[in-house]
């Protein structure tokens, strides 16, 4: 068996994991499954693409940072894209989810997120068409790194970026007052208010963090594969499988879950064929729900 699947799996796992962080935070803090989360990825990728275009129009053609396929315009554009996606998530909550949450029926919010997902996706198709597009058409040469594994400079950079972001979110959750407030809100919303936590503020932070990370995941897909309106929707099943495998509410769990699913998918492609890729997340999801529904890092509700 060719060990190349390890690199492929880690990359896929990074994208899944970054998305799953948002899913797990929304689920544990706002108590609903946000099926529009995948579309935040696609919106993030397109927002970044548009920002790259705008920067290009303002500053002209800028050479990529060797040996990467992209230069500082993309890096600046990702930051803009993260802000836009965070605001999009916030806006969607303000217009839709917050109003339905006030009525107190979780299933209605879940269904609304389905609707939002379709609307967001259609809007992208309307604006950008459904034809795939790319950040760069340059072809990168993969370097051999031993054991039959090849990796491109872009891939190395993105794996490092994922590690930095995951560490950052973990520190945010465990070392800052905002993070502790998020944990508190997920454990007992009534008590969180009693100890002086402004729930509305914590909810806003949750959406911004989830949206921004979804944007990065979307841009990663855009750099390594391609950008299309359905790119995020296709990530939905693996993202939810990762969040549930890791244990709902756990940031490290979501990332580890993402990596496990990414590796399992990549391994399955080699062993039994690419058409089984999607089945892998589903099988893992079902197995976790049957064997250990609380996930790897999950804790039983007391």
């Amino acid at each position: 068996m060719n060990l190349q699947f390890v690199v492929d799996g880690l990359l896929a796992g990074s994208m899944i994991g970054l998305g799953a962080i948002g899913v797990t935070l929304t689920y544990s803090i706002l108590r609903f499954s946000n099926f529009a989360h995948g579309d935040f990825m696609a919106w993030g990728a397109y927002a970044t693409l548009a920002a790259v275009g705008a920067i290009g129009a303002m500053f002209g053609k800028i050479a990529p940072i060797a040996p990467l396929s992209f230069g500082w315009p993309l890096i600046a554009a990702v930051v803009i894209g993260m802000a836009i996606t965070g605001l999009l998530a916030l806006l969607l909550d303000l217009m839709l989810f917050a109003r339905l949450r006030a009525k107190g029926q979780a299933i209605i919010v879940v269904m609304a997120s389905f609707g939002a997902s379709m609307a967001l996706r259609s809007l992208l198709e309307f604006i950008f068409t459904s034809r795939p597009t790319y950040f760069s058409r340059a072809i990168q040469i993969a370097m051999p790194v031993g054991f039959g594994i090849r990796i491109t400079p872009d891939q190395i950079a993105l794996l490092l970026l994922t590690a930095v972001l995951v560490l950052g979110v973990h520190l945010l959750m465990t070392r800052t007052q905002t993070g502790r407030s998020m944990q508190a809100l997920s454990q007992n919303a009534a008590l969180a208010r009693i100890v002086g936590i402004d729930v509305a503020k914590v909810v806003r932070v949750t959406w911004i963090v989830g949206g921004a990370l979804a944007c990065v995941a979307g841009v990663m897909i855009g750099i390594l594969i391609q950008i299309r309106p359905f790119m995020g929707f296709d990530m939905l099943l693996p993202m939810f499988a990762a969040a549930i495998l890791g244990g709902i509410g756990s940031v490290p769990g979501a990332v580890l879950g993402g990596l496990i699913i990414g590796l399992a998918e990549a391994g399955a492609v080699q062993l039994i064929g690419a058409e089984w890729r999607a089945a892998v997340s589903f099988i893992i999801l079902m197995t976790v729900l049957f064997v250990r529904p609380i996930g790897l890092f999950g804790v039983r509700e007391r």
Partner: peptide
């Protein structure tokens, strides 16, 4: 206010329970 039941955050450490109230 100290509620009658469920008046701590069960999954957080004792220290984090105190810190989270220091807003």
């Amino acid at each position: 206010f100290v509620p009658q039941t469920e008046n701590i955050f069960p999954l957080m450490s004792v220290e984090d329970n105190l810190k989270v109230a220091c807003g």
